[in-house]
């Protein structure tokens, strides 16, 4: 299934970034984009630039923090890391997703049982 680029909700991208940072630790924008590409197995084809818009939004809410550092090929890059507030937010969002997918799953199984 090919999802259209514009259908990636901004909220889900935020969530994916938070999860990525939580799982892999501090990462720069390029790295985040590669990880998302990998994880979604090329199903989600978004413009990579939108990652930066999400990163700004997450920064404004205080869920991630940014710091200039040196990347693996010795170049200057901005590294993002998840904050304690961000951890909490991730947990909350994850729980929401679980709940929703659970409900939808049950509804779908209902139909099948009919």
């Amino acid at each position: 299934m090919d999802m259209k680029k514009s259908e990636v909700l901004q909220g889900t991208l935020d969530l994916m970034i938070l999860k990525t940072l939580h799982a892999l630790g501090p990462l720069h924008g390029f790295g985040i984009a590669r990880r998302i590409e990998q994880v979604s197995r090329d199903v989600l084809q978004l413009n990579e630039g939108t990652v930066y818009t999400s990163l700004l939004r997450l920064q404004q809410q205080g869920w991630i923090a940014a710091e200039w550092g040196t990347s693996e090929n010795n170049r200057k890059a901005k590294f993002y890391s998840i904050t304690k507030r961000g951890q909490k937010q991730l947990q909350v969002e994850a729980e929401n997703w679980e709940r929703i997918s659970d409900v939808i799953g049950r509804v779908l199984r209902l139909e099948a049982e009919e």
């Binding site: 413009n47 990579e48 630039g49 939108t50 930066y52 818009t53």
Partner: peptide
């Protein structure tokens, strides 16, 4: 191309920022 429209991105950032 993969990155997307740079100018639009800058404008969106500015909107947010």
């Amino acid at each position: 191309r993969q990155f997307g429209n740079v100018t639009l991105l800058q404008e969106d950032r500015r909107d947010l920022r």
